[in-house]
Design a binder for these strands. Structure first.
Length: 329
DNA sequence: TTGTGTTTTATTGCCTCC
DNA sequence: GGAGGCAATAAAACACAA
């Protein structure tokens, strides 16, 4: 019986609503007006005949009176359509002249249902029956209304979510573009500073050599240290002239032709630029490599406070393990 | 008045839960 | 296996411009 629904049979749906293809449904109402479902018949018959419930069917409930009239053209069947409240001869006349009409719920009924939906958008059986009683509808109609209402709510919610996502995407895009600009300006600044540093280092190396020649004796230990540090910068003189940015020791395992070898080999345990922590795309990382800049000069994006526009971009330290040789302040 | 797009009511089939 | 929820869909009702 999967996929087939028998409305009302022993349940609380309150009778049949058979569609065009009514072979799937079981009509509960006999043409003579008796009901196949005992509890339902009790409910609806009492409702239509007593004063406790205004009506079992709202004046605007969908109904067919083909059945009521004993017609045979339609399988749609409903309970008595005549509403005690506001159905007079006018409505009766209306029904007889507009067979098979699908009736919309009245504004009041909808308001009532909306309120009920606001408090709880799911419908327990008792509540359904009570609402149906109050509104003069079939429980099945109440259930359908709630179902459709949930669907509408879901659609609206999806629209809202979509708009929220769209606006947050827009914000992120603006942020991203700003960061790109900032990155470019930082790169330019780094190039300038690197040039200066190389020049300075060159001068210092020359002065150490001339001092050495002048005295012809062992230099003081501090000068040796300085020279040693300088050489760590990769300042092979011949290379310095050709690759101005290649300031790192080409013998160092970390650098190959000015490119951080660890960048090329992420498997290397010394890979200091963890791809998982990188907010830069592979292209950007490649560009960094091509620019011969130590990749870790850029802070992780999440470490940057963007609420304050940076006044100086030079607060970063090259993470060179050899005695923290360089630092800007 | 009529054509057309939108909304509302209702059905059907499938799925999940108990 | 029955009950109920949901997605997809049909169709009536409604709104509105031409």
């Amino acid at each position: 019986m999967a996929g087939r629904r028998v409305y009302g049979g022993g349940g609380d749906d309150g009778g049949s609503i058979s569609g065009v293809s009514s072979n799937h449904s079981v009509l509960l109402q006999n043409r003579g007006g008796s009901f196949a479902s005992e509890p339902l018949s009790a409910l609806f018959l009492s409702g239509s005949s007593s004063s406790t419930s205004p009506s079992l069917l709202g004046s605007r409930s969908m109904m067919s009176f083909e059945d009521i009239r004993g017609g045979n053209g339609s399988n749609r069947s409903f309970f008595c359509p005549f509403d005690n409240e506001d159905n007079g001869d006018e409505d009766l006349d209306d029904y007889f002249h507009h067979p098979e009409k699908k009736r919309r719920l009245s504004a009041d009924q909808v308001r009532f249902l909306e309120k009920s939906f606001e408090t709880e958008n799911k419908l327990e059986p008792e509540r359904k029956v009570q609402l149906a009683k109050d509104l003069g509808l079939q429980p099945r109609q109440v259930a359908i209304w709630f179902q459709n209402r949930r669907a509408r709510w879901k659609t609206k919610q999806l629209e809202k979510d979509y708009e929220a996502l769209q606006s947050s995407y827009g914000n992120l895009k603006v942020d991203y573009e700003n960061l790109l600009k900032e990155k470019d300006s930082l790169k330019a600044e780094i190039l300038v500073l690197t040039d200066k540093l190389i020049l300075k280092d060159k001068e210092r190396s020359n002065s150490v050599v001339s001092e050495d020649d002048k005295f012809g004796e062992e230099p003081p230990q501090n000068l040796v240290d300085e020279a040693s540090k300088s050489s760590k910068l990769g300042c092979k003189q011949e290379e310095m002239s050709s690759v101005k940015s290649d300031i790192f020791d080409s013998d160092s395992p970390h650098y190959t032709d000015g490119v951080h070898s660890s960048l090329l080999d992420p498997g290397d345990s010394s890979y200091i630029f963890d791809p998982d922590q990188s907010d830069l795309s592979q292209d950007e990382e490649d560009n960094l490599g091509k620019n011969l800049l130590p990749p870790c000069i850029f802070p992780k994006l999440e470490d940057v406070d963007y609420s304050d526009p940076p006044t100086s971009s030079c607060n970063f330290v090259f993470p060179i393990d050899d005695n923290a040789l360089w630092s800007w302040s």
